[in-house]
């Protein structure tokens, strides 16, 4: 609204220059393409997962995924530490509308089912633990939005789910140290590529990650939407 024709014109010229520069630089993209074919070769031999990205995330770089989950946990911890004094029962987010209530009652199982589908098909199709967890958390967000003060989640249950799934993730790693002498390795039968029960340990790790991520995002949204009246 505030920008003029001149600024749009300048931005067009700048963007065309940037795109031309990108066209030049993308010619020299040999390093990443060789890495991609290398990963694809290894993935075809060692894990029976149809999606190479998930096998990189959970199998080759499982320790990095543990670090990411820890970073999420620490950020939620910091938010809860900072906002704990301002929490109350009052939901700032609620929107009173009977149509929305009925529709969200209908849509909630559908969205949760879709999230579960994304999670358990993580090694077959795009998606996985993080994305499916956030989809389930968005279903809970819709419930917070539609049901004003009738719907509230107990923080004890959220924290219990979060800590149990994190402990399960680490326990899986320790178990694989005991069995095959490698942290977060594969100790289950691999199965055939393209089937639901395949990929070895990848679906188990993704189930733990998804429970943790959905509990964390839900509690983050809940910390943000409840506020004490500031007099």
């Amino acid at each position: 609204m505030k920008f003029s024709i001149r600024s749009i014109f300048i931005s067009l010229i700048v963007s065309i220059m940037i795109v031309l520069l990108l066209q030049i630089f993308l010619q020299f993209d040999l390093v990443t393409s060789s890495a991609g074919s290398f990963v694809l070769n290894i993935n075809a031999n060692s894990t029976e997962s149809a999606n190479a990205v998930t096998s990189v995330v959970t199998y080759f770089r499982g320790f990095d995924t543990l670090g990411e989950v820890t970073i999420l946990f620490l950020s939620i911890f910091g938010i809860s530490l900072g906002l704990e004094g301002y929490r109350d029962k009052f939901n700032i987010f609620a929107y009173e509308n009977s149509l929305l209530k009925i529709a969200v009652d209908t849509l909630f199982p559908l969205i949760v089912l879709f999230g579960v589908y994304i999670i358990i098909h993580g090694h077959l199709s795009p998606g996985g633990g993080f994305q499916g967890g956030v989809i389930i958390a968005s279903a809970f967000l819709l419930m917070f939005l539609a049901k004003s003060n009738d719907f509230s989640l107990k923080h004890n249950i959220l924290e219990l789910a979060e800590s149990l799934s994190g402990a399960g993730f680490i326990l899986l790693g320790v178990l694989s140290i005991l069995i095959i002498n490698r942290f977060l390795g594969n100790f289950l039968p691999l199965g055939k590529i393209g089937e639901l029960f395949s990929g070895g340990v990848i679906p188990l790790i993704y189930i733990f990650v998804s429970i943790k991520v959905s509990a964390e995002i839900t509690s983050l949204v809940e910390y943000f939407i409840r506020i004490k009246d500031v007099k």
Partner: peptide, 11 residues
């Protein structure tokens, strides 16, 4: 889409 995204970023 590249050009559109840059215009949107400036907006």
């Amino acid at each position: 889409i590249f050009i559109t995204l840059i215009v949107l970023a400036i907006a």
